[in-house]
Lab assay of single mutants.
Amino acid sequence: PQEEYKKRAKKALKKGDEDTAREALKRAGLSPDQAEEFIRRFL
């Protein structure tokens, strides 16, 4: 589910792994723009 992928993305970002985070967010159904926004907000 979407929440699970978002959790995964946050874990990846904590490790500084933005590529894995983007992949997880893409799987969560976010557009690339939404994924970038999510990452920017998190960092």
Rank of each mutant, 00 (worst) to 15 (best):
E18V: 15
Q2T: 12
P1C: 14
Q34P: 00
K26A: 14
Q2S: 12
Q34G: 05
P1R: 13
S31M: 06
A24L: 15
A35F: 03
L25F: 02
S31V: 03
R27H: 12
K14D: 11
K6M: 15
S31R: 06
D19V: 13
K6E: 13
Q2Y: 12
R22N: 04
I39H: 00
Y5A: 14
R22K: 07
R8Y: 11
G16F: 04
K11A: 14
A28M: 06
E37S: 07
K10R: 14
Q2R: 11
A24K: 04
E18S: 10
K11C: 12
A9E: 01
I39Y: 01
K14H: 13
A21T: 02
A21I: 02
E36C: 05
A24F: 15
K10F: 07
A9V: 04
P1V: 14
K14S: 13
E37K: 06
Y5D: 07
L43W: 11
A35M: 12
E23W: 05
K7S: 10
R22P: 00
K26Y: 12
I39G: 00
E36L: 06
A35C: 10
L13S: 01
K6S: 05
A24G: 03
K14Y: 11
K7T: 10
Q34R: 05
L30M: 12
E4R: 08
R22T: 04
E36M: 06
K26H: 12
T20V: 09
T20H: 06
P32D: 13
D33W: 07
P32S: 11
A12G: 02
K26T: 10
P1A: 14
D33G: 09
P32F: 10
E23Q: 08
P32H: 11
I39M: 05
L25T: 00
F38I: 05
E4V: 06
A12T: 01
K7P: 03
R40Y: 10
E18L: 15
D17T: 02
K11Y: 06
Q2C: 14
R27F: 10
K10M: 14
A28Y: 04
E18W: 15
G16I: 02
D19P: 10
L25K: 00
A21N: 00
R40W: 09
D17M: 06
E4P: 04
E37I: 07
R41Q: 14
K7E: 15
I39V: 06
E18D: 07
E37G: 05
E4I: 08
K15E: 15
L25I: 02
E4Q: 08
L43H: 11
A28V: 03
R8N: 10
G29N: 04
Q34H: 05
D33V: 11
R8Q: 15
Y5M: 12
K10Q: 12
L13Q: 01
Y5W: 15
R27C: 10
L30V: 04
T20F: 07
S31F: 04
E37L: 05
R27L: 15
L13K: 01
Y5H: 12
D17N: 06
A12P: 01
K10C: 13
G16M: 04
F42V: 09
E36G: 04
K7A: 12
F38D: 01
L30K: 01
E37P: 00
L25N: 00
A24V: 13
D33C: 11
R22E: 02
D19R: 12
E18H: 13
P1E: 15
A9S: 02
R22Q: 04
A12I: 03
R22F: 06
L43A: 09
G16L: 04
R27K: 14
G29R: 02
A28S: 06
L25M: 03
K7F: 05
E4F: 10
D19M: 12
L30N: 01
G29Q: 03
A24Y: 15
F38T: 02
D19H: 12
F42A: 09
E23I: 08
A28N: 02
E3I: 08
A24N: 13
G29S: 03
G29K: 03
R8L: 15
E36D: 12
A24M: 15
A21V: 03
T20S: 12
L13G: 01
L30R: 00
Q2I: 12
A28D: 02
F38L: 05
A9I: 04
R27Q: 14
F38H: 02
R41G: 09
E18I: 15
K11W: 05
K14T: 12
D19A: 14
S31W: 03
P32C: 09
K15Q: 14
P1D: 15
E36S: 06
E3F: 07
E36N: 09
K10L: 14
R27D: 11
A9N: 01
E18C: 13
G29W: 01
K15A: 14
R22C: 06
L43V: 08
E23H: 07
A21C: 04
K6Y: 15
T20N: 07
K15F: 10
D19E: 13
Q34I: 05
L25A: 02
E23M: 05
K6T: 10
K14Q: 14
E37T: 05
E37D: 11
F42M: 07
Y5G: 08
Q2A: 13
S31A: 08
Y5F: 12
A28Q: 03
K6P: 04
E3H: 08
F38V: 04
G29P: 00
R22D: 00
D33R: 09
K7W: 06
K11R: 13
A21L: 02
S31L: 07
P1T: 14
A21G: 03
E37Q: 08
D19T: 13
K26R: 13
A24R: 03
A28I: 05
K26W: 06
Q34N: 05
R27A: 14
K26N: 09
I39N: 01
R8M: 15
S31I: 03
D17I: 03
R41N: 14
R40K: 13
L30G: 00
K6D: 05
E37Y: 04
L30P: 00
Y5N: 08
P32K: 10
E23P: 00
L13E: 00
P1K: 14
G29C: 02
D33K: 11
L25Y: 01
Q34W: 04
F42P: 01
Y5P: 04
Q2W: 13
T20R: 08
